[in-house]
């Protein structure tokens, strides 16, 4: 695994919103099958970093490469590139006018140009993978928050992406529903998916990933294996953040 080429490469990523500089030069290299967890206080730029990877936010400066394709380049076919990157949002963003199966199958039909039967077959497999095969004909409004988020995960997985991005996937969930979603994410990890996860769930950060990134003020302050970060953080800021969050 140490010699595999990088799946995700970020070099010198800068992002400003007007006068406000939110990302001040972030670099990151992720190998296939690696799970990166990003933690940090609000406003540290964690979500912006994630959203720059699939260009939901346009980087101001810097290079982003996914599986060798330079996403930040001008002529790149963004829609094709996005097939390889799955994103799960804090607010789920399920399409209310489609059933769970409809949500999962939409991109399969429109982007991968599958027939209705093929799309529905794969859609059902995906829903089964997240444990919601029986909810295929339910509308988002009829599902709990945790179920909606799992459908959202199935929707992102359906295109068989190489990289999955999770933007605070459990922050909008009632506490008792968080476990179900984290379980699906752990299963994904065990199956070998490359993941970048922004989260406040410290339990997941501690044992869910290969590397933890601590971000503050638009920069990566510290990065390393969870054991190091959580037990022996090198930087003062990391220490302060962990104290606040773990003992609050």
């Amino acid at each position: 695994m140490a010699d595999a080429p990088f799946l995700l490469e970020i070099d010198g990523l800068h992002k400003s919103f007007g006068d406000l500089e939110v990302l001040k030069g972030v670099s990151l290299r992720v190998r296939p099958r690696e799970v990166i967890i990003v933690i940090g206080p609000s406003g540290s730029g964690k979500s912006t970093l994630l959203r720059c990877i699939n260009r939901l936010e346009e980087p101001t400066r810097g290079v982003i490469r996914v599986d060798g394709v330079e996403l930040s380049a001008r002529g790149v076919d963004l829609n094709r590139a996005r097939k390889d990157i799955g994103m799960v949002f804090q607010a789920f963003n399920l399409y209310p006018h489609l059933t769970a199966l409809g949500n999962v199958a939409l991109a399969l039909r429109k982007v991968l140009r599958m027939s209705r039967q093929e799309a529905e077959a794969r859609g059902r497999r995906m829903l089964e993978r997240v444990g919601l095969a029986d909810k295929a004909s339910a509308y988002p409004g009829e599902l709990s928050g945790g179920q909606q988020q799992r459908v959202a995960i199935a929707r992102a997985l359906a295109l068989e992406p190489k990289l999955m991005l999770f933007d605070e996937p459990t922050s909008a969930l009632d506490p008792e529903l968080v476990g179900g979603v984290l379980r699906v994410m752990r299963d994904l990890r065990d199956e070998g998916m490359t993941m970048v996860v922004v989260t406040h769930e410290m339990s997941f950060a501690r044992d869910g990933g290969d590397r933890v990134l601590f971000m503050d003020g638009g920069e990566v302050v510290e990065e390393g294996p969870p054991s190091t970060i959580f037990r022996n953080p090198a930087h003062q800021r990391t220490r302060e953040f962990l104290q606040r969050v773990l003992h609050a």
Binding site: K83, F89, A91, L106, L159
Partner: peptide, 13 residues
Amino acid sequence: PRGQWEAARSTGL
């Protein structure tokens, strides 16, 4: 909501 656009675009539409 913007999230609807984002979700759709993020799946390659």
